[in-house]
């Protein structure tokens, strides 16, 4: 018997196991929360060394990014991420992982065309649209200010 694409879509939906949402959310909450708490501790540490608010925030980002890159190199980040999902994806550490992992993996195509050229295959859009949106915001501010 021939089934239509619509009937088949229905069949597929019934047979495909959905992701375990509740379990995934608990993991994401716990790990994401833990990374943010660690970030808070690092922020407080940098403030204690005498950095001002802004510099301490930058230093915290740099520290977390360095830690995540190290964990990526040690192949631990992906092991945590398998369970944590958004918990490791959404914090700035996920940004670092998305830069370090293609850099490492595409080393086989050379340090120029592999590592360097592929470094922002995943994270590139974040910068493009993040910076793009901030410039739009700035231009709006300029015109509102005038």
């Amino acid at each position: 018997m021939d089934v239509t694409p619509q009937e088949y879509e229905q069949m597929v939906r019934e047979q495909s196991k959905p992701s375990p949402l509740l379990r995934d959310m608990v993991w994401a909450f716990a790990v994401g929360g833990a990374i943010c708490t660690l970030g808070q501790a690092i922020l407080d540490f940098w403030k204690k060394t005498g950095l001002n608010e802004k510099d301490a925030a930058s230093a915290t980002s740099i520290t977390l990014i360095g830690l995540a890159a190290l964990l990526t190199g040690l192949h631990l980040y992906e092991k945590i991420a398998k369970h944590a999902g958004a918990g490791t994806l959404v914090p700035i550490t996920g940004f670092s992982n998305s830069v370090a992992s293609p850099a490492l993996e595409f080393k086989s195509e050379g340090l120029i065309l592999g590592t360097a050229a592929k470094m922002f295959t995943i994270a590139g859009p974040v910068l493009v649209y993040g910076i793009g949106a901030s410039i739009v915001y700035g231009v709006i501010l300029v015109f509102l200010g005038v």
Binding site: K54, S58, A59, S61, I62, I65, G66, A68, A69, L70, T72, G73, L74, I92, F95, S96, V99, A100, A103, L104, K107, L111, T115, A116, M119, A123, L127, G130, I131, S134, I135, G138
Partner: peptide, 23 residues
Amino acid sequence: GAKAAAGGISAAVFFGLLTALLF
């Protein structure tokens, strides 16, 4: 924007490169 985010972006580039070289 880029000035404020410079630390994070540069760190990602630098540590990403370092990871590729070391591991």
